[in-house]
Design a protein around this nucleic acid. Structure first.
Length: 612
DNA sequence: CGATCCCGCCAAAAA
DNA sequence: TTTTTGGCGGGATCG
């Protein structure tokens, strides 16, 4: 509720460097690492806990590890400075700690203390942000040193991998890159995201995705992809291409959901994952949580705190090249490591987006929107962003100002239809600033303010979102391209084929997405116009809801029968990235694949809101 | 009570 | 087969 934390967050001056670092307060800045912890390449030695504990068992409490909670106190402190959450928790901790030991002897630390975010902080504290040497980390080691079960480490590692902060070298062994490559990675993600917008091609993303996505798509996602990793990439990409860099949880979940995701439980699952990812990203100070006001009250959202402008990132390091140092399992691979370049903060200003700032500017207006019946806020849509422009980014003193162009700072919105059962198209348009703050959510609890003015421009690019089937926006199926032409408004000249449905155009029965079919592959992207610029402005949205549709959300999605999502509907659609075993309906024997199935079923039933 | 999200079961993938 | 990875969702906590 309180966004307090957020504020806090900002307050402590975080600064970021280009590389995306956000430093924690000076105090702990990278020192954290050094301080207590051993330096980089640490080996299990330090922990030296019983060698054989291979799999860090799950101890309920903590006994097993040498340094479970208590010892970490200092660490906590360090960390706490760093993250808002932590800071927030700190208070609690104090209290709790005592309790823990005092009374129960070893009561569990309290949920907060065991949170993934805190765990991630602790994890990060073990390694330098900008390692000079190659640092290899072993999961066992880390797990034991942090006193958690390995499963948790995977959660963290996966998102770190998505950010190229770590690379998997071998079983149980990862190379720690810290933030060295973060800037480049973010740049890649951003570019990729933009590209996808322009081109439907699925693919090739920066390596991770390649592997995952590309294959997934083509191969049809056989193996379980690391959806967490991919989801994380995509989640981050959302921020990188969004104007305001503010994404609601709901939006993100919708966007990341896969095809049949219509089910409520599926949605819930995604949300859970999103929380996991968000916690890690928060620990990295790349995002912060906040709430935006929505129709239905406040909605949780995340604000990107990391850099968004990358000076020709690519240039710096070809991702690929660098990317896989892995080769040498033997342990060393020192080479690539250093590139100070990343460390340097890119001049934000310079970096600024090259993109067309000008054109983008939002002059246009929301007119388009008007036609739209629903307003975004209310029904299913989610805003992608609300933040304004930013002129003042956050109150926080960034040392580095956010790069955004003053002008383009408009917020964007994306509309999302929760569960469309039909194919739909959503039009995003750019609006003016004025509108921007509009309704719903405009403001977040804390930061909001309006930004500056935007002069700008005129036309906003339009973006379209295409939703193939019932699914929501799923994986990447939607695309948004923007044409710059937007000026006009209603129908932009899009280069790509699209269909614009004003309101409920699509007939329920019919259509399947044929027309747009080809688009389906496109990945989503939002953003920019033309050359990928940011569009600048805010986007409004228009959408065509499915006929009968529900009013909104997710909840409603599975109206009728409470069946287990999995079993149901296999919509054979094609490629989602996200397919996970579970997802692929067909592939997997749907039926109770796990025992849990039944349980799950129960749950669904139970949950199904209206179902009964 | 809804939002969060920890926990750990268990299956897929890798060794 | 065994071990490693990691989907997934029940259900406990938190606010």
């Amino acid at each position: 509720m309180f966004c307090v934390s957020l504020k806090d967050l900002s307050s402590p001056g975080r600064t970021m460097d280009l590389s995306g670092d956000v430093h924690r307060s000076a105090s702990d800045q990278k020192e954290n690492i050094c301080t207590g912890r051993p330096a980089p390449t640490r080996t299990p030695a330090e922990l030296q806990s019983p060698a054989d504990m291979r799999t860090p068992v799950k101890h309920a409490g903590d006994s097993p590890q040498p340094e479970p909670w208590t010892p970490t106190a200092n660490l906590k402190m360090l960390i706490s400075a760093a993250s808002p959450d932590i800071r927030r928790m700190r208070k609690c901790d104090a209290v709790e700690e005592e309790e823990e030991e005092g009374e129960d002897g070893e009561a569990k630390p309290s949920r907060k203390q065991r949170s993934l975010g805190l765990l991630c902080q602790r994890f990060l504290a073990l390694y330098p942000d900008h390692p000079q040497d190659n640092v290899t980390i072993s999961l066992d080691e880390v797990a034991s040193s942090l006193g958690v079960e390995r499963r948790r480490i995977y959660d963290i590692i996966n998102v770190l991998e998505s950010l190229s902060m770590v690379d998997r070298v071998a079983k149980n062994c990862y190379t720690w890159w810290g933030r060295r490559r973060l800037g480049a990675r973010l740049g890649e993600l951003q570019r990729h995201a933009h590209q996808q917008g322009s081109a439907p091609a699925p693919a090739a993303t920066p390596r991770d995705e390649e592997a995952a996505d590309g294959d997934a798509v083509s191969v049809t996602a056989n193996r379980k992809d690391k959806s967490l990793r991919i989801m994380s990439q995509r989640f981050v990409s959302l921020f990188l291409v969004s104007e305001s860099q503010c994404v609601t949880l709901e939006t993100a979940a919708q966007l990341l959901i896969d095809h049949n995701a219509t089910s409520h439980s599926k949605y819930k699952t995604k949300v859970r994952r999103l929380y996991d990812i968000a916690n890690v990203l928060t620990s990295l100070a790349l995002i912060k949580k906040l709430h935006v006001r929505g129709d239905r009250g406040r909605k949780p959202a995340f604000q990107w705190l990391g850099p968004i402008c990358f000076s020709s990132p690519p240039a710096v390091t070809p991702p690929e090249g660098v990317s896989q140092p892995i080769a040498a399992p033997s342990g060393r691979e020192a080479k690539l490591t250093r590139h100070a370049s990343f460390n340097v903060p890119p001049s934000r200003s310079s970096a600024h987006r090259l993109v067309n700032s000008a054109p983008c500017s939002p002059t246009s207006r929301p007119a388009a929107v008007s036609q739209q019946p629903l307003d975004c806020s209310r029904h299913a849509l989610l805003d992608l962003s609300y933040r304004e422009g930013v002129s003042t980014p956050l109150q926080a003193p960034y040392s580095q100002p956010r790069p955004h162009p003053e002008e383009d700072s408009a917020p964007q919105r994306v509309a999302y239809l929760p569960s469309l059962s039909q194919p739909s198209v959503v039009l995003l348009y750019g609006g003016q600033r004025s509108p921007k703050r509009k309704r719903d959510g405009e403001e977040e609890d804390e930061n909001r303010h309006v930004g500056g003015s935007d002069p700008s421009g005129p036309a906003q690019p339009y973006h379209y979102l295409y939703v193939p089937h019932n699914a929501g926006l799923n994986s990447i199926n939607f695309l948004l391209s923007a044409s710059q032409s937007a000026a006009g408004l209603s129908l932009p000249t899009l280069a790509l084929p699209y269909v614009l449905l004003p309101s409920y155009p699509v007939a329920p029965g019919d259509a399947h997405p044929s027309p747009l079919g080809f688009l389906s592959q496109a990945n989503f992207l939002m953003g920019g116009a033309g050359p990928y610029g940011h569009p600048g402005a805010e986007l409004g949205v228009t959408l065509a809801p499915p006929p009968q549709s529900k009013r909104d959300d997710v909840t409603k999605q599975q109206p009728l029968t409470p069946r287990t999502p999995k079993e149901t509907t296999p919509t054979p659609s094609g490629g989602t990235f996200f397919q996970t075993p579970g997802t692929l309906g067909s592939v997997v024997p749907a039926i109770g694949r796990r025992k849990r199935g039944s349980a799950q079923r129960r749950l669904d039933v139970g949950h199904t809101p209206q179902a009964s």
